[in-house]
Design a protein around this nucleic acid. Structure first.
Length: 497
DNA sequence: CTAGGGTTAG
């Protein structure tokens, strides 16, 4: 612990290992900066608490009063279910009422006017630590049975999606097996989820037996099932079996899609021989229609060649791609840039840029941004900075990642003012839209550390204007200090924007 | 459902 004097009251700051003394002093000066100048210029900051918390409160209070079969009475609650409300209830129930929280989550997922986004699933999964505590959902299902709750296929889908998010293959399979006990039957989509989990795990025996089970209960594997299976089989090196599945499908009169072809092609590139891969690509081109190779198809082939160091072959595929009328995109170019950088042939990328930009699938700005990222990644920071500055002077728009990387790098090596100037320049030409928000915090702390108070003040003002919150690990420490010096409202604003 | 940029530190 460290005792600091700010104003009349001593302030104690927990001093974690990331926070040296100079940093703490810097944070204190931010505190002073923000409190002295900014607050006065922005009198509206005093009331920032939102009123939208109430819907979660209504549901939570209802849950507290009505134990047991909560789903029955939840219908009577007159409140809107939305994602804010759902996460609100999740937070209130954790950790002492986890089961209730999850039951509410499942119930909410069944409402016709609301659908959990994948973000909500990951939120619920991470917050309740489903991966570490899969039993929580077991218990929910057992509670449904004990209380004779009415459950539907959709109920199980929500639970399955939580296990999917938690990457728990065995538990997901358990959900499928549990359904008949409730008189319910899983559909193809649910099988696909479980098959995918086992494919990712590399447990292809279970995945295969699941696919067999499907036909036994009159369910048909769809294109998604095949894609997952082919990918899984390729990944464990069972190329022949992947090919076999592909052929069986064709024999059944089911035409493989571009995606399926691409997955198989990618597998052959990775583990098979090049000739066979190129034959398959030709076959796709000839077949055309729903089998036509697309950007992804070509890009993955190019990428595999690059990985193997076969730059020439990769470039030939690029030609083949363009001849077929398919435009390379940012990802395609990215692979090739990386390859050129690795080989120390950086000068050659500019000719590549001219070529691919003509296709219309990617711009010079994107090409140069990729180059900056690539150079930085191969520790060629000096060159990266050169390219980046060249972009700015020639009016090319750097993308968010290139900006973030460049500014962060400058801060990291102590050239905070340079970083700020770059930032300022990009901001002035209006190119700063998609920059990482933690870049702002990094810059702000750096500027304070090096006592560039004018710039720090300007930046802080800009952050408030743009409603950019302070990022961890700075937000906590800055927040602490601000709060202890009585700047609670300001903290609310900067951290809870 | 197929390709897929970066993170610092001892």
């Amino acid at each position: 612990m460290l005792r600091l004097l700010t104003g009349s009251e001593p302030v104690y700051i927990s001093c974690d290992k990331n926070l040296g003394f100079t940093k703490i002093m810097a944070l204190c000066s931010i505190s002073r900066l923000l409190s002295s100048s900014i607050r006065l210029q922005n009198p509206k900051f005093s009331t920032v608490r939102s009123t939208a918390a109430s819907s979660a409160d209504i549901f939570f209070n209802h849950l507290q009063k009505n134990g047991g079969n909560i789903e029955k009475t939840l219908v009577t609650v007159k409140a809107q279910v939305d994602s804010k409300c759902v996460s609100g209830v999740l937070y209130r129930c954790y950790p002492s009422q986890s089961q209730m929280g999850l039951r509410f989550f499942i119930w909410a997922g069944l409402q016709s006017d609301y659908r959990h986004t994948s973000y909500m699933y990951s939120k619920a999964c991470n917050f309740y630590k489903i991966t570490q505590n899969p039993k929580l959902l077991y218990d929910v299902i057992e509670a449904y049975r004990a209380e004779r709750c009415s459950v539907t296929v959709k109920t199980f889908k929500v639970i399955l999606n939580l296990y999917k998010e938690a990457k728990l293959a065995d538990e997901a399979l358990w959900v499928l097996r549990k359904m008949p006990e409730f008189g319910l039957r899983a559909d193809t989509t649910m099988y696909n989820v479980v098959i995918r989990l086992f494919c990712v795990k590399g447990d292809m025996d279970v995945a295969e037996s699941l696919m067999k089970t499907m036909s036994l209960i009159d369910l048909y594997p769809d294109m998604i099932t095949y894609v997952e299976m082919v990918k899984g089989l390729c990944n464990v090196g069972r190329l022949e079996d992947a090919f076999g599945l592909f052929k069986v499908m064709k024999e059944h009169g089911c035409l493989p899609s571009t995606v399926l072809y691409s997955v198989l092609l990618d597998g052959i590139c990775k583990f098979g021989n090049t000739e066979k891969a190129m034959d398959l690509l030709k076959e796709m081109e000839k077949e055309g229609g729903s089998c036509s190779p697309n950007v992804v198809t070509y890009t993955s082939v190019i990428q595999r060649f690059c990985e193997k160091g076969q730059t020439l072959e990769a470039l030939e595929v690029l030609d083949q791609m363009e001849a077929y009328g398919c435009s390379p995109n940012r990802v395609t170019v990215g692979c090739l840039i990386e390859r050129f950088c690795v080989e120390g042939r950086v000068e050659e990328v500019y000719r590549l840029f001219d070529k691919v930009v003509k296709g219309g699938g990617v711009s010079y700005g994107e090409c140069y941004s990729s180059l900056v990222v690539c150079l930085k990644r191969s520790r060629n920071t000096e060159e990266a900075e050169k390219v980046f500055r060249k972009m700015l002077t020639s009016g090319l728009k750097p993308d968010g990642l290139a900006c973030s990387i460049m500014i962060k790098e400058l801060c990291l090596v102590g050239r905070v003012l340079d970083g700020y100037q770059l930032f300022d320049e990009i901001e002035k030409i209006g190119y700063l839209i998609s920059i990482d928000s933690d870049v702002y915090s990094l810059l702000l702390v750096g500027l304070c550390e090096q006592s560039h108070s004018v710039e720090a003040k300007t930046l802080a003002r800009l952050m408030l204007k743009k409603r950019i919150r302070l990022k961890a690990p700075y937000s906590d420490s800055i927040g602490e200090i601000l709060k202890k010096s009585g700047e609670e409202e300001l903290v609310n604003h900067l951290t809870a924007i």
